[in-house]
Design a protein around this nucleic acid. Structure first.
Length: 472
RNA sequence: GUAGAUAUAGCUCAGCUGGUUAGAGCGUCGGAUUGUGAUUCCGAAGGUCGUGGGUUCGAGCCCCAUUAUUUACCCCA
């Protein structure tokens, strides 16, 4: 048998001990915040039926789904003597779209929102509404990997279903802010916008082109600039006048409040039809969120921006939309979310509103790494290594090992009697801060030598003193 | 799906217009040192130069193909 070079699939990664420790740290911060806000954990299967997944993410999304081949002989089914062809020649002629449903009925989870919606519908009878859940699990996308983009990555979702209250939106801002602050990512911008504000732009331009074309162009403003957006809009059938008008609207400046006021005036001037009870729903919603935040005593106003160019999740978001950008790192958004009025409609439960958002842990990790924001202590595993001198010392030190562990000190005994240099290197390489030595000399005196590797300091102590030192 | 870049030791990379036996640092292992790491000194192991073809007297280097990785676009966390 030939030896093969081991490899892992494109866009996937192994996580070594140090990386896992750091990832666990991020998960912990996020989980604590989610739970503090009253969200309860949910886990769903890695595999979903393809019927659940397809059609939920648009055409592009369907292509990015990982499909799982049916197990067994997916070409034929045999029952007794009757053999039934699963895939016929006609199917093959008809192409991949005809063949796929016959050979694959399962797929890997693409995000956490759709499985959540499915779960809500399946369990609607037993859930207490409004239902608040968080979910921290990997998702898979058959995308081309690049910076900050992987084929397997973790999302941390928090969503509420069964309420229209804008309190939820305000709390999302609070949770985002708290997580980022806890992680030390202080130079961030939480961007907020509203789908209906975008809709009002479309109306103000006089109904040229299509909404989606307009919104995707708007979203690129900070990336390709006015010129690029103008060019793209022209190609999509927007007149130069409309584009000019759009830039006037997008150029709205000032504080959150001022932008709301100025847009209101602009919409009235442009003759945009009010879509809310008494005015423009998008602006009203945003104002309400703002009021909630003031009521909460939110303080990080510099990190919150009403960004009228923010457009995302166009195929399903209907209300407020969110995104987080870490400013001092070149990285795509580390979090995004929004409200969808008809989350569960596709599964036969219409009229249930949901709002939620998601952190991308892998991108957060990359940001923290780049900014060196991981706390030192996160990497620590074993706290104390007991040196192994010889067979006699190995035996003598076993009760010590037990006592240290009983006291809650992560301790290991080097498993072989070998030269101390090697044992030191082991401790050093593993980042173990303390080395405990008891050779024949110390044993005769009933004492131990405790060495702090970082400083090279050595203390001669009794076991009780060692315990006090290490437990602290 | 579209376009570019890269592929040489376990890791990071040198390698001249194509020219004898393929180089360094780090790491690993052994020794100086049978009770002291990270710092010192000496030594050793480790490579079908991604893969398959081609050009050439001769290819790590040039050409073609292929695979993998990576960056950007689209889209997204």
């Amino acid at each position: 048998m030939s030896v093969q070079k081991p490899s892992i699939p494109q866009g996937t990664r192994d996580f070594g001990p140090a990386v896992v420790a750091r990832r666990t740290y991020i998960f912990g911060v996020i989980r604590r915040v989610f739970e503090k806000f009253g969200y309860a954990p949910l886990e769903t299967p890695t595999l979903e039926n393809l019927s659940v997944l397809t059609g939920k993410y648009g055409e592009e999304g369907d292509q990015l789904l990982f499909k799982v081949l049916n197990s067994g002989n997916f070409l034929k089914k045999q029952k007794g003597d009757v053999i039934k062809e699963q895939v016929t020649a006609d199917d093959l002629l008809a192409g991949a779209k005809a063949v796929l449903p016959k050979i694959a009925e399962k797929g890997l989870r693409y995000d956490l929102t759709v499985p959540f919606a499915r779960y809500v519908v399946m369990n609607r009878g037993t859930l207490v509404f409004p239902f608040k859940r968080y979910q921290i699990q990997p998702v898979w996308r058959a995308d081309r990997p690049q910076r900050g983009r992987y084929r397997e990555f973790y999302q941390c979702d928090a969503d509420v279903v069964g309420t229209d209250s804008l309190l939820c939106e305000a709390e999302i801002v609070l949770m985002m802010s708290e997580v980022l602050t806890s992680l030390g990512l202080t130079d961030h911008t939480i961007k907020i916008n509203h789908r209906r504000v975008l809709g009002a732009f479309y109306q103000a331009l006089g109904g040229e082109g299509t909404e989606v074309d307009l919104f995707t162009a708007i979203d690129k403003l900070d990336k390709i600039g006015r010129e690029g957006v103008g060019k793209e809009l022209a190609e999509r059938g927007f007149s130069a006048e409309a584009t000019e008008k759009l830039f006037d609207l997008l150029g709205v400046a000032g504080s959150f409040d001022e932008k709301l006021d100025r847009l209101l005036a602009a919409f009235v001037t442009a003759g945009v039809e009010p879509d809310g009870a008494d005015g423009y729903q998008g602006l009203q919603d945003l104002r309400r969120v703002l009021e909630y935040l003031r009521g909460f005593g939110f303080e990080k106003w510099d990190n919150l921006e009403f960004d009228v160019t923010l457009a995302r999740g166009l195929s399903y978001y209907t209300g407020c939309i969110f995104e987080i950008k870490i400013n001092n790192v070149n990285m795509g958004s580390v979090s995004g979310g929004g409200r969808y009025d008809n989350l569960t409609g596709a599964f036969g439960l219409p009229g249930v509103s949901g709002v939620g958002f998601s952190f991308g842990v892998d991108r957060l990790y990359d940001c923290l790494e780049e900014l060196s924001l991981f706390p030192e202590a996160v990497a620590a595993t074993t706290r104390c290594l007991i040196a192994n001198f010889d067979a006699e010392s190995e035996t003598a030190v076993l009760p010590v090992l037990r006592r240290l562990r009983a006291a809650g000190v992560a301790t290991e005994l080097y498993p072989e009697s070998t030269k101390l240099a090697k044992q030191f290197k082991y401790a050093d390489g593993k980042g173990i801060p303390y080395l405990l030595l008891q050779g024949s000399e110390e044993r005769a005196a009933g004492q131990f030598k405790l060495k702090t590797l970082a400083t090279g300091q050595e203390q001669t102590l009794t076991l009780d003193e060692v315990l006090t030192e290490l437990a602290g």
